[in-house]
Amino acid sequence: MRVLYSFPTRLGVSGIGMTAWHQVSGAAEHGAEVTVLCASNERPLPPGVRVVETLRPAGLKVPFRVVGYLRALDWHDRRAAAALRRLAGRIDLVHAWPLRSERLLTTARRLGVPSVLERPNAHTGFAFDAVEKVCADLGIPVDPSSPHARQPGKLAIEEREYALADRLLCPSDFVARTFLDAGTPASRLLRHRYGYDPGRFHTGGRDDSGRPFTVGFVGRGEPRKGLHDALRAWLRCGAADAGGRFVIAGSIEPGYRRVIEELLAHPSVTEAGHVPDPAALMRDCDVLVLPSVEEGSALVTYEARACGCVLVVSDHSGAPGTDGVDALFHPAGDVDALTERLRSLWTDPELLARLRTESVRGAGELTWSAAGAVLTGAYREAAGAP
């Protein structure tokens, strides 16, 4: 399987840059011949992966700020489309990322090369609506700098990309559902998933004896991720006033902080800020809570499972797990349901231990290497290969 993988920004940096890096590495590990086009590559890839850096002409890196972010993305799309034309007959499948893949996907369609489009989040129209609603409920405006602030032009671009790609790669059932609800035929949706690095995230050194019941929230404090719901449920479940701990790892948006400051002030709540080693923090937590109103498939949920945290997450988090077997899910925005799930784990140590055991047992199937096998299977299906 010969794959042209197009990623329009920096490959191998934190966030989606590492997600894309792991996808390329995993696909190569499982036999795909990958040619990567990226703005720049910041981390060595496995031998055999060919890399073309579209913003590093003659070995000189051009910062995004010099040419402008959107102009850089547009330049990358042009370069990717030109590369596909040159490689016609030597590429079996195109894997594109959203927002400025229109030329590449158009070229793939013209040449008859099957294409898949990564969907790291829910349908963008759904995401805009969800963020606007939660901010309205909180009485605050949507942060205009947020990638989830409504931008009609962005939505129009992405909807054209949705239409041009042969298949949409959905990392969770939740993401797929938002596309089905928007009218996308099920036949155009391909399920795959993300993963975690077992070298960083594991249960080694975990000690659950003598520690108070501890819940962790790891991620940016913003309305979309539902920290306000997590704190409200925490203060209602009973553990907060019985010696329990709620630890927040990550920065909190200033405007959002103003509406949750009373919740943050409770003595059971600790703000750890940026944590350089989130794995160590999660090994010191019983539960990871993530009541998001919109996600793609939150990487922290994979990592938490590997560290022995039981997931208590919303059905919009895209988390890997089965409710009541190795995790506890609740309807997004339902604070009463979230409260009950936290209370059940606090008051029933046997339930907590059982869910943890099952969660850790299944975590070995959620590594980035395992995700690479799933991704190459999706490639074969999209390309019609055996």
Rank of each mutant, 00 (worst) to 15 (best):
V116W: 01
P291H: 01
T347V: 12
I260E: 10
V312F: 03
R85K: 12
L355A: 08
G238Q: 05
E161G: 03
L311C: 02
K133N: 02
A27R: 13
R356A: 14
S172V: 00
H22Y: 14
A122V: 02
V113I: 10
P152V: 03
R85E: 14
L352K: 09
G308Y: 08
Y162E: 01
R103V: 05
P291R: 02
L351M: 08
P141S: 06
A319V: 05
S297V: 01
E53T: 01
A83D: 02
V49K: 02
M282Q: 11
L37P: 03
D336K: 08
H30E: 09
T19Q: 10
E262W: 12
S344R: 12
D286Y: 04
V62D: 00
F128H: 00
G205C: 11
V113W: 04
V289H: 04
V24W: 11
G255M: 12
D334F: 10
G216C: 15
R86P: 06
A230E: 05
R86S: 13
R305C: 05
L328V: 15
L338K: 05
C170M: 00
D336W: 03
V247H: 05
A149P: 09
A306L: 07
P254K: 11
R100D: 04
H330W: 15
V134Y: 00
D77H: 03
R206D: 08
R220S: 15
E53C: 03
A182Q: 01
S314E: 10
T301I: 00
P349Q: 06
T106P: 02
L342E: 11
V300M: 11
S344A: 14
A383M: 09
G238H: 03
G15M: 10
Y5P: 13
R354K: 13
P8N: 11
S297Q: 04
A378Q: 00
R10Q: 12
P276Q: 08
R85C: 09
D181I: 05
G243Y: 14
L168M: 01
G17A: 09
A186K: 12
R211G: 04
E261L: 09
A249Q: 06
D207N: 14
D326R: 06
L138I: 04
V215A: 15
V360W: 14
P57K: 06
L299K: 04
S209F: 08
E350I: 07
G68M: 08
P63L: 01
T107E: 15
F213Q: 12
